[in-house]
């Protein structure tokens, strides 16, 4: 017993000596520069958005401030420099000229110099050539959400021939156009007492809506297991929300090539966004992009300057492609109340 009484303090002294104090420096992770920017082989303008997170724990917690008045340039691997101009009325957003587009095979570097004299650079990003054989098809998909609810829509599948001579990484983006019908003559407004009263509107029952990233999911693919094959993968899921398929939905799929580093970044970002709190979630990790502070290379800069070759294909989606289309929702209002709605019929419609 007397030995036991001696052992415990000795063990504590010996073992305790190997515990390093955790150096938590909160300030290191505040006021972080956030860079969101990409250039592609499509005609510009291409945009770079610069923001900085507000001080941790302040009343502006969670608020991001635009970085206005910075000098922003893109330099290619031959030394040619393109200056970006800050977009009027959009502080912190910088744009290339409309005639600028990236060239396959060249590398590009984003250079940022802030009004405070801080200089940042990206690591050089090379434009990898995209396969030219993109073709789109669709598959109806229905997923039970709860006992009584389900989500349905169309998986838009991209099929292409992967380049066998290189390791390739892809990202898909989508945007769409669709026509909606509403019933402005049945609009119900409210009188001065706040009671609902019929207030028919003269206009408008037909509109066309543009939506960017109707499917906001980050869609990525590595050709690790399919190198050189004909590949088919889901590029977007367009949900039947009882509004989109009044007539047809024009989906435009952009297939972007990525570097390995960009793929890893966006894959990690995708994983982080998928965390919903259960034990099977991946552990949170620091998202380090390809931006570097020249005077303090260890500063954490969030974001990625991406360069991509892009191939685009489009397809009209119709409700006939769906096994169980939802009945259309009746909207008793002017169709122009929808964001990005226009009554002008697009030329391609």
């Amino acid at each position: 017993m007397k030995y036991r009484n001696r052992i415990i303090p000795i063990l504590l002294v010996i073992l305790g000596s190997c515990i390093d104090p955790l150096d938590v420096n909160i300030d290191r992770e505040v006021n972080v520069l956030i860079v969101e920017g990409a250039i592609t082989t499509q005609p510009g303008p291409h945009f770079v958005k610069l923001t900085r997170s507000a001080k941790y724990g302040s009343i502006f917690d969670g608020y991001v401030r635009p970085i206005a008045g910075a000098n922003v340039a893109i330099r290619d691997s031959e030394g040619k420099v393109v200056l970006l101009r800050e977009v009027a009325d959009s502080p912190g957003v910088y744009a290339t000229s409309a005639d600028f587009k990236a060239v396959v095979g060249k590398s590009y570097t984003l250079l940022i110099s802030t009004l405070q004299g801080l200089e940042y650079t990206s690591l050089p990003e090379k434009v990898i050539q995209a396969p030219q054989s993109l073709a789109l098809s669709v598959e109806y998909k229905k997923t039970q959400v709860t006992e009584k609810e389900f989500r349905s829509g169309l998986d838009v599948l991209a099929t292409f021939d992967d380049n066998p001579e290189a390791q390739n990484y892809y990202m898909w983006k989508n945007n769409g156009t669709y026509k909606i019908k509403t019933y402005p003559e049945d609009y119900i407004g409210r009188n001065s007492e706040g009671d609902p009263v019929p207030q028919p509107k003269d206009c408008c029952e037909f509109c066309w809506l543009e939506e960017i990233n109707g499917d906001p999911t980050i869609r990525l693919l590595s050709d690790n297991n399919v190198n050189g094959n004909r590949v088919t993968d889901v590029a977007a899921f367009i949900e039947d929300d009882a509004v989109r398929f009044y007539e047809k939905y024009l989906i435009r799929i952009e297939q972007h090539t990525l570097t390995r580093e960009a793929y890893q970044f966006f894959n990690l970002l995708k994983e982080q966004l998928s965390i919903n709190g259960d034990i099977f979630d991946p552990p949170p990790a620091t998202l380090r992009g390809n931006m570097i502070n020249l005077t303090n290379p260890d500063e954490n800069v969030i974001g990625y300057f991406r360069v991509s070759d892009v191939v685009i294909d489009s397809l009209y989606l119709t409700k006939e492609m769906m096994a169980e289309p939802r009945p259309l929702r009746r909207i008793n209002n002017d169709c122009r109340v929808y964001k990005n709605a226009t009554t002008i019929k697009p030329s391609y419609w």
Binding site: I10, I14, S17, C18, G79, T109
Partner: peptide, 28 residues
């Protein structure tokens, strides 16, 4: 306890290592 503690002692094989990374910028 000494055995356990040995795991905390810096490895005598730790060396000085520096690596050469990328070219961030190149011009004329």
């Amino acid at each position: 306890a000494l055995v356990l503690q040995s795991g905390c002692i810096p490895d005598s094989k730790v060396q000085n290592v520096v690596i050469t990374e990328d070219v961030l910028y190149i011009s004329g």
